[in-house]
Amino acid sequence: MLTITVSGMHGGVGTTAVVANLSAALQQQGLRCLCIDANVDNMLRLALAVNPEEKVGWAKASLEGASWKDATLQHDDGRWVLPFGELDADELSRFFPTLVAGQSPLHAVVADLASLPLDCVLIDGPTSRSLPHYSLPGVDLTLYVAAPDAASYALLKQDAGHWPASNYRILINRLQPAQALASAIANLIADDFEEQMVPGVVHEDLIIAEAQAELASVIARAPDSQAAQDFQSLALWCQSEFQSRVE
């Protein structure tokens, strides 16, 4: 089983969209996927077409002593999604200490997963600076999502040196080659982190936002779009990366 954590360099780089669309591509390529939302925002469920009224999630289940399996929902295309859960202010104040103290219920979830018929688990993680402070279970690969902007580049220069080299890759999302600044920064990132780059980028494509608003993946919504192509290539790369790690 392939476990990937996706983390944005900063807010708004499109982490949740990457998780939703990458999982759709992997599922289409025949891998059974589970997406876990590790964000308090609990937004991943919308990208996977879960009823917005639905409040279930692994965090909520653990507080209520219920099983996380009951909180797991299935998308029409076969993907599974485990939302964070809709916690009110009181529940959140009870939940946070467990997260930081290294006893996150997510460890138990991931330990259980091995016995399930799954090929791939994608965790929609917090932003890169917060990631080490959340107690998330160990994964095969951390995918840092960077936008071609100054903030992403600055954070990468500042932090990437501390990350274990074998375990992470950088993905450039929302690239607009027609914009001189964006392509210059993308080239800078690609030059400075040559070994760590995911080959290929995800372009800025309006269809991603539109699909998100329609609670669909771009693969299903617009198979001819470049975004669908980008995520399909990314999914293929993930598979080959996983194959090479197994060997």
Partner: peptide, 29 residues
């Protein structure tokens, strides 16, 4: 493969099938 960026902000996936110094031809669905 190439991508076509439309003024609307959408990107289409296409195949470049021939090119010359003054232009190109792409194939798409």
């Amino acid at each position: 493969p190439v991508a076509l960026e439309l003024p609307s902000g959408h990107l289409l996936h296409a195949q470049l099938v021939d090119f010359s110094l003054s232009g190109a031809r792409v194939e798409l669905s």
